[in-house]
Design a binder for these strands. Structure first.
Lengths: 333, 333
DNA sequence: TGCGCCGATGATAGCGCTTGCATAAGCTCG
DNA sequence: CGAGCTTATGCAAGCGCTATCATCGGCGCA
């Protein structure tokens, strides 16, 4: 019975066992087709025998390509990105990438630290859904790492942007609610840039359509289920009760519905509510929640495709990738 | 004005700029106190001037320590671990570790791949909340990576376990509900091992206390908000309506409450509901949800402390770390 | 004054892999 | 049948760090 050396086996161990050079084993590991079938078979066997696990630190150092992607999001709990991120992580993993997760919160310095950490690890790409501050372009541009902003389409993206127009999303919602006959919308948004753009889009369109004044309130980022309580209390104090509340996330919409119902109101008859993001709960709530769907899996796929192309040396598309959105009319409005 | 070389600066660049050897710069980067104050200052300046970002692939390769920790969980959306994982990621990041996130789903092969990927990256530790299959011990034991199972206390953990007794959690809940006067509990659990243990603990204690029969149903992993609908429908078809439903997660409890209320039942008067995990929504729902609190942040801290000690060569505690749990009585039962 | 020590630094040998270049067969074809 | 390819493999030079060992001034102390 073969002695198992007590150190973890390296390429060389596999090589000598298979009777080839370590270069050949390396080739086999990274691209099996380039070695002859018979050799491949011997190497495969040798790998299994010694229980070889490649050292990606060494590989990454040598190739300056890490097969690792950083995903930066503000939060995990109740995050509007959850479904998108779950899709993202699944797609990245099955695409052979390792995911480095960073939680930025709302702090720019935290975001910066995480970006530095990612660059330190020579990640192939950084996918960020958080806010971008002014120091980031300089950091990123000196590296070969691809920077991808998701969920928005900034005028001048750092690297690549994959998202949709928040302004259009806002105005689409305005048209929808107007056509449904609502007249006194109340907006509740997290105080982030994107939510602000949606709000502007809504208000502008609403007024263009001849709608009256639009009231609005702000909640902390992220807009969570738990905010529902305070938001509802605030609404009750409004001089005139709105007939529909436009929420910055489905979770907030859910929280608001719960509160409204607890207060004896019927949704949507007494108060209609719409969310944003088409999180899984939106279709499962009672009443089901009218919302905007964003195709997270599509964003993930586009991101991965871009990373691949970029890795192979192709130029990036010189314009952001617009994945659009889709209004989903359900029971709540 | 100084020319910025178009390649990314290395330790050597910093060293020559500061007029010291690269070894000294390395010392400064990893442990500033060991270099003389004046030298430190020069190095600090040089680092800022050239915009040096350490290459952790190279560092990790040389030191065989990656400062990276893999976190493996089944899901992101509606996961009972969300709050724990958020705490975990925050604590790890501020502790200087990079987090590699893996979503195992319910597949053992997926879990295996992720563990291999983690080992390939020479992570300092793998923190797993998923199910452990028989092939894992062999994989992990040949490496120097610390394996940490969280949220449970298995008899024979692979590496270290940090969690609590699911059996005790089950029996505590049984005692609590009995003392509150409930008589016909119905259990709804995800079909995972841990949930099964809690159920057994509940049933056994319930019967010890002289309670009658306990009905139970199973849902897919993870037990989510959306399951509430089917679970409620099933309950209605039970020969005798339960007076309290014990759910495997707060999200499921929430979903069930929503359904019950939509059907005109009052919670807890007509049907009481309890959850598990003390997710943030539990205290924010109407009614607030009675649940079991598990201190996720404590688990995270214990894990990090263990990783640190292990990295410094200390032996692991030879017994699992029991962080306990706490029943939180709220309005829903 | 001289010995031993300690704190600060330099020189250097790898860590385990990738990859450009060189080599050696096998093929095709006029 | 040999020039000119293509294909399969080996050789060896790094990738950018860390860590061991050696060096070299002080400095306390007998």
């Amino acid at each position: 019975m073969a002695e198992i050396p007590d150190k973890v086996p390296t390429l060389d161990d596999v090589a000598s066992r298979a009777g080839v050079s370590s270069a050949t084993v390396s080739r086999f590991v990274n691209n099996p087709k380039v070695v002859a079938a018979a050799t491949a078979e011997r190497i495969r066997a040798a790998i299994a025998e010694v229980g070889y696990i490649p050292n990606l630190l060494a590989g990454g150092l040598a190739s300056s390509r890490s097969k690792m992607v950083a995903v930066l999001i503000p939060h995990l709990v109740d995050s509007i990105f959850n479904d998108t991120i779950e899709a993202m992580v699944e797609e990245l993993s099955s695409g052979g990438f390792t995911v480095m997760l960073g939680l930025t919160g709302v702090s720019a310095s935290r975001t910066n630290e995480l970006i530095r950490a990612a660059l330190s690890r020579k990640v192939d790409a950084i996918i960020s859904s958080g806010p971008i501050d002014a120091t980031i372009p300089a950091l990123v541009s000196r590296s070969t790492t691809l920077f991808i902003q998701i969920w928005e389409l900034p005028e001048h993206p750092v690297g690549l942007a994959i998202g949709f127009s928040h302004r259009d999303a806002g105005s689409d919602m305005a048209r929808f609610l107007m056509s449904r006959g609502y007249r006194r919308p109340h907006l509740v948004t997290a105080d982030g840039a994107r939510a602000g753009v949606r709000r502007d889009g809504f208000v502008e369109e609403w007024q263009t359509l001849g709608g009256g004044n639009v009231t609005h309130a702000t909640v902390d980022i992220p807009s969570r289920f738990g905010h529902g309580r305070r938001v509802f209390a605030d609404i009750r104090r409004l001089p005139e009760m709105p007939d529909v509340v436009v929420c910055g996330s489905d979770y907030l919409a859910q929280g608001l519905i719960v509160e409204a119902q607890a207060a004896g109101l019927r949704v949507p008859e007494d108060l209609a509510v719409v969310g944003f993001g088409n999180s899984s709960i939106a279709g499962e709530m009672r009443p089901t929640i009218t919302t905007m769907d964003v195709d997270g899996r599509r964003i993930a796929r586009e991101a991965i495709a871009a990373i691949r192309r970029y890795g192979e040396g192709s130029a990036l598309p010189d314009h952001p990738i617009d994945v659009g959105f889709r209004l989903i009319a359900r029971e709540s409005a």
